[in-house]
Design a protein around this nucleic acid. Structure first.
Lengths: 344, 344
DNA sequence: CTGAAAGCGCTTACAG
DNA sequence: CTGAAAGCGCTTACAG
């Protein structure tokens, strides 16, 4: 603290008082000009706004927030950034929120410190709402939010408790889609490359896939032991899955990044051609999936719609409008590329 | 505004006053407990701190900032998020800043609106410092910051004006490293796959590379017309460069993501084997570069060091400590993998 | 060492 | 329609 004022070169900020003085008005009047629904003469408002624009004044949202109890901050909590799916979501969501005149405060949950502790400092800024971008986050963070009455919406994570908000892809349905696709093409021995075992995306995709396999009288699919959603994990799991003599003819990977690792393992470790010797499917449809070298058959998450829903929900909650809790499950669609084929 | 209080379910926040009342002290005393260098009896401080922890009180940094003129917010401005290099930097930087008790306010500059406008709303929160993660950002944003006296540090971008702060890889030296490496291995006809022409990374890498080629009496390298740093751009550029009859024996790509696109083009469009028919090099050493399917020879940016320097610099500036302006150019190192070979 | 008071930059009843 | 005053949650000289 002591050094905060060590070198007072900071330009002193323009305040309402300055404006009021320069315009010969009271601060109240000046303040009112910035609120559409305030009672103020149109010419007065215009005068204020014009002058403000000229000298580059804008009300300090921090001071404003003290009174209105609204910070216009939305907290964005992320953790698993290795999945290329997230940076894209993060930036697009941020753009949308910014366009609605909210600012995003980012917290990256590092395993080094407790989730709750890290969210606590975010909470001290009184965000109007926080959105969790996280398959991976436990509910500790959400609980901390709820304790201070801050609404939270989960992106890409279901299974949070009853009265919270979530928007996800319909992962279970996606899993079924994949089972049908593979089975329709004659596959019987199918392997599953798992991601994080406790992630709802992993659980739901597997559940749908597994259920559909049983419904269609396919032998129990063999699942790898899940660890993380990473290239390396996909590589390692596929190597094991494809090592035995009775290897699967197809692999469903819990997400694209796993699938890309799995493809490399199939080619380099097991010496198999994709899709000639083994079919491989992912989930998400990240940008890389469509690169010619991967050309991955996968299920595309309805990302535009998901972001849209999340934005609308977050904005409504930030404004304290009543919203119906629950998880919105949006349907994905299967996109066929070159990593799968029909068995003769 | 009107709807802000529509549904007053928000838990009322605990304030200093509550603490003071509950402890039978004045607010001044309570406040002092949170400052290490304030004069206050040790037992009093402990009593306050203990009680605060119990009931989950922490001072509101917004109100605090009004007085101290320090928001403990650092602005993080990003734009080109398609390059996987950035998400990594972004999250690691954020973690470091959080660990130092600063919070990150993220602004994603979208091409839809003006840079200055988008930074303006960040500035209204009075960040103590802003760091620009951007090869791509113009100086408009930086100018806006300077106008209100907010210090800015550029990450991965040099060539900002004289009295600003920047930390980058020594890109020019990296370009020379690559020229030497290729020339030492017998390459004479070398192509350059350019990224964004106005990005300092692109310019500096090319400059060093080009200069070194001339110094060593290699024929003028042929450069593609740069557009963006993307897989697609690398793909398109390499296809053109490798199409002619007198094609280059090696390609230096301005970054890894371009290089990966270039490799795919070489293989699929030109029918060339890498490195047998053409050697390919990138720059950055993003995670993907080391995947077995790419195994890209590249120059690794000293990312740990860069992040460290940026953190230290940003923190110092946030505290208004005097810092020496200028750009810190940190040496990268060449990492050899499987996309290059010696010419016989 | 502690407390009463002023003030940070705003907004918002309350009078006029 | 406008202004004077109170107050949001804090910090910090200033007395004591």
């Amino acid at each position: 603290m002591s050094d905060t004022r060590a070198d007072p070169v900071r330009t002193p900020r323009i305040t309402v008082k300055d404006l009021a003085r320069q315009l010969g008005m009271s601060v109240s009047t000046v303040s009112r000009a910035f609120y559409d629904d305030a009672v103020i003469a149109p010419e007065t408002r215009e005068k204020v706004l014009r002058h403000a624009a000229e000298i580059g004044y804008q009300p300090n949202p921090l001071a404003r927030g003290l009174i209105t109890k609204s910070s216009r901050i939305v907290g964005l909590v992320v953790s698993d950034i290795t999945n290329p799916f997230y940076p894209e979501v993060m930036t697009r969501l941020t753009e949308r929120l910014q366009a609605a005149d909210f600012n995003v405060m980012l917290v990256v949950v590092s395993p080094a410190r407790s989730e709750e502790e890290q969210v606590r400092v975010l909470l001290s800024y009184h965000p109007d709402v926080v959105v969790m971008l996280a398959t991976t986050l436990s509910s500790a963070a959400a609980t901390a939010c709820r304790k201070v009455g801050t609404p939270v919406v989960f992106f890409n994570r279901s299974g949070s408790d009853e009265h919270s908000y979530a928007v996800t892809c319909d992962n279970e349905r996606g899993g079924r889609l994949i089972a049908d696709y593979l089975i329709d093409r004659g596959h019987r021995r199918i392997g599953f490359v798992a991601g994080r075992p406790d992630a709802s995306t992993n659980v739901d995709r597997w559940r749908g896939f597994h259920a559909r396999c049983l419904e269609r009288d396919i032998p129990e699919p063999i699942a790898s032991e899940g660890t993380t959603f990473s290239y390396e994990a996909g590589y390692a799991a596929a190597r094991r899955l494809l090592a035995g003599p009775d290897r699967p003819t197809a692999l469903f990977c819990a997400n694209d990044i796993l699938a890309i690792g799995a493809m490399d393992a199939a080619r380099r470790e097991a010496g198999l051609a994709v899709p000639e010797d083994v079919s491989i499917m992912g989930f998400d449809d990240i940008g890389m999936a469509s690169w010619p070298s991967h050309a991955l058959t996968t299920v595309r998450q309805p990302i535009d719609l998901m972001i849209d829903r999340t934005t609308v929900l977050a904005l409504a909650l930030a404004r304290n409008e009543p919203c119906e809790p629950g998880v919105q499950r949006l349907p994905g669609r299967l996109v066929e590329r070159n990593t799968t084929r029909s068995l003769p």
